[in-house]
């Protein structure tokens, strides 16, 4: 009986779904009652964050999580004809050019952006997406470990230092094949050593016995001396990580800039309302929460929490690669990286 009722419900679901899908022809734009924000897995904001937006516009905000930045872009590409949301949050500079070139986001940079946010705009595509968070992927080390060590070597001060066999057994790195932090670090080595030199760097690192983990959590909480039970005093993490682990430092010269963008989803039925939502993402209601909720920096000039002011490495003069070049070469670089590291 239960199953019968269930199947009837199922039939209704499918039928309604088809009706919804078929009836969505071209009609003049109306104000929607709700908008869907596509997000990544680390997206987190207080429950009442969008209350003011709802009060101002009458629109409720719903969320649809699609995994990491890379997963978002691939999943959105797949659902291009029937997008599952109106605005996307969290495509970073590694994937932004690909998202633009494949047409899954439409051109819109919020008019609320000021000179302060200018450094975060996507080079070559400045008018296409709106920066919402900023941060760096950097080498972190445990200062107390090196202070207690009787070795001649201190903590590394550059990426080139890591070629020294001494550091090999001391470092944990998230893999570029499965981790967005890992991709950022691979790009840092390409920015530093060039396309001709980064392969040798990685061969050396692997030969020296560096630990490569599948994700950031395994590296930081599993392997890092200051993160959990680990025995590696060097780890690839965020520039903001020292805000939470005062005995650690981030090495400024090793940082790769990671900016996350909000984009207008191509094919949304409500572009006007979606643009309003993108503008709202730059408001203090959202930006003030970013450090404590998502552990990256805001893009606007809102005040930072005290421990961030004190210990976190502010994003700025980090290593960078042109977004269009990343989009063009990323897969090729990763292929080479995979062959070196996986053997």
């Amino acid at each position: 009986m239960e199953t019968k009722r269930f199947n009837r419900a199922l039939a209704v679901i499918i039928a309604t779904g088809m009706l919804v899908a078929c009836s969505s022809g071209e009609t003049p734009e109306e104000t929607p009652t709700e908008l869907t924000l596509i997000t990544h897995g680390s997206f987190s904001l207080a429950d009442d964050t969008f209350d003011k937006f709802t009060a101002d516009t009458g629109i409720t905000v719903k969320f649809h999580e699609l995994g990491s930045a890379g997963e978002i872009v691939n999943a959105m590409n797949l659902t291009k004809n029937n997008p599952v949301g109106d605005v996307v949050w969290g495509i970073d500079n590694v994937f932004a050019a690909q998202a633009i070139e494949s047409g899954i986001v439409s051109e819109y940079a919020s008019p609320l952006l000021t000179a302060h946010e200018a450094p975060f705009l996507l080079k070559g595509y400045e008018t296409w997406m709106t920066p919402v968070t900023s941060g760096d992927i950097c080498l972190n080390y445990d200062d107390s470990w090196f202070a207690a060590s009787d070795s001649d070597y201190g903590p590394p001060t550059s990426l080139a230092d890591l070629k020294n066999p001494y550091y090999g057994p001391l470092i944990a790195i998230p893999a570029a094949s499965t981790s967005s932090v890992g991709v950022g670090f691979m790009l840092a080595t390409i920015a530093e050593f060039g396309e001709g030199g980064y392969e040798d760097f990685w061969k050396q690192l692997v030969a020296n016995g560096a630990t490569i983990t599948s994700g950031w959590s395994e590296a930081y909480y599993g392997e890092f001396t200051a993160g959990g039970d680990g025995d590696k005093p060097i780890v690839v993490s965020y520039g903001s990580s020292p805000a939470y682990a005062p005995t650690t430092r981030a090495v400024a010269s090793t940082c790769f800039s990671q900016v996350e963008y909000a984009g207008l989803v191509t094919g949304t039925k409500y572009p006007t309302a979606a643009k309003q939502l993108i503008d709202y993402l730059l408001s203090d209601n959202v930006q003030l929460q970013i450090p404590d909720e998502m552990y990256v920096f805001p893009v606007t000039d809102v005040a930072l929490p005290a421990d961030w002011e004190e210990n976190a490495l502010k994003p700025g003069s980090a290593l960078n690669i042109d977004a269009a070049l990343i989009s063009q070469k990323r897969s090729e670089w990763l292929q080479a990286w995979t062959e070196i590291v996986f053997g």
Binding site: I13, A21, S24, T36, V84
Partner: peptide, 18 residues
């Protein structure tokens, strides 16, 4: 997972609770 997403989005039911 991708197949379910593709199908649900084609049917316009990707956000449904059920």
């Amino acid at each position: 997972g991708l197949g379910l997403l593709l199908t649900a989005s084609n049917l316009g039911i990707a956000g449904w609770w059920i």
